[in-house]
Design a protein around this nucleic acid. Structure first.
Length: 482
RNA sequence: GGACCAGUGGUGUAGUGGUUAACAUGUCACUCUGUCACAGUGAAGAUCGCGAGUUCGACUCUCGUCUGGUCCGCCA
C-alpha cells in the first residue's frame, strides 16, 4: 500500500503560499480542457483550488470527475483572478500528477448547486456529502459541540452519559420500543430526553450536569423535525430563572462567536409568552420584521354590526404597500393559512386614495375609519387584515401565521441577520382540545410562578410558570424550566 | 390517522388521447494557451415508477399499488 503524503490542504492555500512547492491531495471537481492548457478544480474538505496543467510540459494521465489526485506544483498568482472563489487569486502550476484512485461517472453533480432532488441525493448520500455546503453543516455542528464543551467545562459542569435502553420517560411523545431478549415480552424504551436521569443526578448532588444527548421521539417527520435528534442537555441545582438564562446566554454568545464570529449582544431580549402571542401571534416570534397585531375592538365598541358586535376580539395586522397586489385569490391563500387555527372571519381593508376600501367599510362610521387609519398609521396602498373571533388564542395564532406568510412572500426579512430572544413564563396548564382535560403545558415537573401559586386550585389556567424558550429567527431552538 | 403534490435518458424538467417522446445539463470523441457555468463540432443515452382497466390507439384518462415531498393531527 502506497502512503500518499501532502504538504497542504487545497482550500487552505492562499497568497501567503506564493512560490512554494506544495503537494496536495483532492477530488477532481471539474476539468476544463483547453488543449495544451488544462484546468482542474481540486477539492478537499477545506475548499477548491485550481490546478493548471501545461500538457506540452508534463504528462497528464486520464483525469475525470471525482478521480482522486495527488498534485505536486508551485503556488502561483493567477493571470486572471476569480473573486468568487476563496482561493481565486492563486493556482497550482502542476509539475507532477498522480492518480490515487479512479471513479465512475457520478450520478449527481458533486457541487454546491447540484440539481438533484432530495431522494436522489439520499440514495447517493456518500456523494451528496462530498459537496462542500453539506460538509460545512457538519463542521458547524462539530464546532458548536466543541464550544459547548469548553463553555460548560469552564463553568464547572460535569458531563455525564445517561442510559439509552431505559424505562419509559414521561415526555409528551410516543416512545420507541426495543424488545428485551432476557425478559421476553418486555420492552426497553429509548429516552425522549434524559429528563428523569438528570433530576436524579441533582438529587445525588452533582449540582451541574450536562450532556450532548441523543433523544428519540416516535412522531411523524417535518422539514425541521426528526424523530431522533441531539440536544444540549443541562440541569443545575439552586439557580434562579434569571441565573440560568444568563448562564445560557453566555453559552449562546460563545457559540456564535466561535463558530461564525458573530457578536451576540447580551442580555438577550426577554418577552413573556402572553406578549409574544398577543403582539406577534406566536410563541416563537420572528421579530426581524414588524407587522404587530393590533386590537381595534375598543375603537369599534359602539358599532352595532353583527360581525363586529358579536366577536369579543377584533385584531388586525398591517402589510405595507401591497393593497393593489392583493387579489381575492391572494386573500383566499392567506385565509387558508389562518384556517388551520380555526379562524374563518376576516375582512380586508385597503387604504387607497387616502381612504379605506373593503367590504366592511360601509359598516364603519367616519370617526371609526379615521381612528383605525391613525392607530394603524396607514399609508397609501397599505393593506389591513382584520380578524374576528371569540377565541383569543385562535385569533392570535391565525394572524401570526398570516404575518409570517406575508413576510416570507414579500422578503421582509433581511437575510443573514440573527434575531435571538427569550420567550418566558408560559402558562402552567393548558386544556386539551379533544378531551377538555387539564394537562401540563411544559412537563409535569414545572414550577409555578410564586405569585401565581394561590390560584393553582381556583384558576389553574391563569397560573404561569418558570419556563423559557430560546427563539432564533422564529424557530424554537431550545427551552427549559425550573 | 388524514389532505395535497410529484414520479419521463445519469441528473433536472417539458410534453391534456395518435410526436421520430422535446429541452437543458451531465457523459463520450475530436479541436483549442487563460478557463473558472470555458467555447466549438459530433455522438451515445428513455421498454415514460409498477399493475390492471377504458380505448382502434395511453407518457397522457380511470382504479389500485409503491416511492418521495409538503402540510394537518401528533411533537410538553
Amino acid at each position: 500500500m502506497e502512503n500518499f503524503k501532502r504538504t497542504h490542504y487545497c482550500g487552505a492555500l492562499s497568497l501567503n503560499n506564493l512560490g512554494e512547492c506544495v503537494t496536495i491531495i483532492g477530488w477532481v471537481s471539474k476539468k476544463r480542457n483547453l488543449g495544451s492548457l488544462v484546468f482542474i478544480d481540486l477539492r478537499d474538505r477545506y475548499g477548491i483550488i485550481q490546478v493548471l496543467v501545461k500538457t506540452d510540459e508534463i504528462n497528464l494521465p486520464d483525469v475525470r470527475n471525482e478521480y482522486i489526485l495527488q498534485v505536486e506544483g508551485i503556488v502561483s498568482k493567477k493571470e486572471v483572478p476569480n473573486p468568487t472563489l476563496k482561493t481565486g487569486d492563486i493556482e497550482i502550476i502542476a509539475s507532477k500528477i498522480t492518480v490515487i484512485n479512479t471513479a465512475e461517472n457520478p450520478p449527481i453533480i458533486v457541487a454546491d448547486d447540484t440539481d438533484a432532488n432530495v431522494d436522489t441525493r439520499l440514495k447517493y448520500r456518500y456523494l451528496d456529502l462530498r459537496r462542500l455546503c453539506m460538509q460545512k453543516n457538519f463542521i458547524i455542528r462539530s464546532k458548536i459541540v466543541k464550544a459547548v464543551h469548553e463553555y460548560l467545562d469552564a463553568n464547572d459542569f460535569i458531563e455525564i452519559e445517561t442510559p439509552i435502553l431505559t424505562l419509559s420517560t414521561p415526555e409528551g411523545a410516543r416512545d420507541y420500543l426495543v424488545p428485551s431478549r432476557i425478559r421476553k415480552g418486555s420492552f426497553y424504551a429509548l429516552p425522549q430526553s434524559p429528563q428523569l436521569f438528570k433530576q436524579l443526578l441533582m438529587v445525588s448532588g452533582f449540582e451541574r450536569y450536562y450532556q450532548v444527548a441523543r433523544c428519540f421521539r416516535d412522531e411523524d417527520l417535518r422539514a425541521d423535525r426528526q424523530p431522533d435528534f441531539t440536544q444540549i442537555d443541562i440541569e443545575t441545582s439552586f439557580l434562579s430563572q434569571d441565573e440560568i438564562l444568563t448562564l445560557t446566554e453566555g453559552l449562546i454568545q460563545k457559540i456564535y462567536k466561535d463558530v461564525i464570529n458573530y457578536d451576540v449582544e447580551l442580555p438577550l431580549r426577554r418577552i413573556s409568552y402572553d406578549d409574544a402571542v398577543n403582539i406577534y401571534g406566536s410563541d416563537k416570534p420572528d421579530t426581524r420584521f414588524d407587522m404587530k397585531l393590533v386590537s381595534i375592538k375598543d375603537i369599534l365598541s359602539d358599532n352595532q354590526n353583527d360581525l363586529i358586535k358579536n366577536n369579543k376580539y377584533i385584531k388586525c395586522i398591517k402589510a405595507e404597500n401591497i393593497a393593489s397586489d392583493t387579489s381575492r385569490k391572494v386573500q383566499d391563500e392567506y385565509n387558508l393559512t389562518a384556517s388551520k387555527f380555526n379562524m374563518k372571519s376576516f375582512a380586508y381593508l385597503k387604504y387607497v386614495n387616502s381612504k379605506l376600501e373593503g367590504s366592511i367599510v360601509k359598516f364603519l362610521s367616519e370617526l371609526e375609519q379615521q381612528q383605525i387609519i391613525a392607530l394603524a398609521n396607514l399609508h397609501e396602498n397599505d393593506l389591513l387584515i382584520v380578524a374576528f373571533s371569540n377565541n383569543l388564542k385562535n385569533i392570535n395564532f391565525g394572524l401570526g401565521a398570516m404575518r409570517t406568510l406575508i413576510a416570507k412572500k414579500y422578503n421582509l426579512i433581511k437575510p443573514n441577520t440573527y434575531d435571538i430572544l427569550w420567550v418566558v413564563n408560559f402558562p402552567l396548564f393548558e386544556r386539551s382540545e379533544e378531551t377538555g382535560e387539564i394537562s401540563p403545558c411544559h412537563h409535569p415537573f414545572t414550577r409555578p410562578l410564586d405569585e401565581d401559586l394561590p390560584k393553582s386550585e381556583t384558576k389553574p389556567y391563569e397560573v404561569y410558570s418558570y419556563t423559557y424558550d430560546i427563539v432564533m429567527n422564529g424557530y424554537e431552538a431550545g427551552g427549559g424550566s425550573l
